[in-house]
């Protein structure tokens, strides 16, 4: 019996198959087009701004004429706020994930938490900005608009990402390791601290970094909390500039020098986010090899 004896697919069906396969390929290519364009334009328009003198070493000055200044205060503000937001959301997020995997498990309460955390991921970032505005800005706790309030708003956004990615990673820790530690007579908290957390460390790092990358680019919540500023400040208790706010304001300017700065700042922001993504992937690859 030869292969040609098999019933053959009719030409019409074969044609449909070919057409549909090509359509799927086309869809994939279409999906990649925006990425290519965005990166192309960021480099095309942003590189000259980034390489202009003083771009990273001066602050925006608000002058109507002449050199509008660089993005130093924006970078510092972004780094400081994201650092504080990470310091809040990562420990809390991992703690809640630990609750879910080590104590709550499949209990009703744990599932309610999961449910709300999932729903929280869908809350628009601007709504988190409003929340913090209502709770912290209107009440003027420690000043009206401050960097730390921006950080709190961003940490709320990062929290569900940290919780759910950590939960997945903690679940990957084989239960045999927990059992081994428990059978040695270890109390539960030592099992978590010395066995569960170290074993899942790189995965936790990956999830946290992805949350950082996400939080870093958020603009909307900062508008009502940190509010932006020109001057360089390391003080989280004052109004604070950030890359996304700077870009948002610069886009709306009629001056070419300032919109050019927006492109430069955009390139810088995307570069930062991509670097963090790459580190996250390397960390996750390491965890898979271990």
């Amino acid at each position: 019996m030869s292969v040609t004896a098999l019933p053959r697919v009719s030409p019409r069906r074969r044609r449909t198959d070919k057409v549909m396969r090509s359509l799927l390929l086309v869809a994939t290519l279409i999906a990649l087009v925006p990425l290519v364009f965005i990166i192309y334009y960021l480099l095309h328009k942003g590189l000259s701004a980034v390489t202009s003198s003083g771009f990273f070493s001066t602050d925006p000055n608000g002058n109507f004429f002449g050199n509008p200044g660089g993005i130093r205060s924006a970078i510092l503000g972004t780094l400081e706020m994201i650092a504080l937001a990470t310091a809040i959301s990562v420990p809390v997020g991992i703690a809640v994930a630990l609750y879910l995997t080590e104590y709550g498990k499949e209990s009703k309460f744990a599932n309610v938490i999961r449910y709300f955390v999932d729903v929280m991921t869908g809350v628009p970032s601007i709504v988190f900005g409003l929340f913090i505005y209502i709770v912290l800005v209107i009440s003027k706790i420690g000043g009206a608009f401050t960097g730390w309030k921006g950080a709190v708003a961003i940490s709320l956004l990062m929290l569900p990402i940290v919780i759910r990615s950590s939960e997945v990673v903690l679940l990957l820790v084989p239960s045999s390791l927990r059992e081994a530690a428990l059978a040695l007579g270890a109390p539960r908290w030592r099992v978590m601290l010395r066995v569960v957390l170290p074993t899942s460390l790189s995965g936790l790092v990956t999830g946290s970094l992805l949350a950082v990358a996400r939080g870093m680019g958020e603009t909307a919540p900062l508008l009502f909390t940190a509010a932006g500023a020109f001057a360089l400040t390391g003080n989280l208790g004052a109004q604070m500039n950030a890359l996304p706010i700077q870009i948002y304001n610069d886009i709306q300017s009629p001056r070419n020098a300032i919109t050019a700065r927006a492109w430069g700042a955009g390139l810088t922001l995307v570069a930062l986010v991509l670097i963090i993504n790459v580190i996250a992937r390397i960390a996750s690859r390491r965890s898979r090899m271990a």
């Binding site: 081994a180 040695l184 270890a186 030592r190």
Partner: peptide
């Protein structure tokens, strides 16, 4: 099921350390 993050020594010591 040795603890994957621990060395040979630490694995044997784990019981003593984990029980404080």
């Amino acid at each position: 099921n040795p603890f994957p993050t621990m060395s040979v020594f630490d694995n044997v010591a784990a019981g003593l350390r984990l029980t404080g």
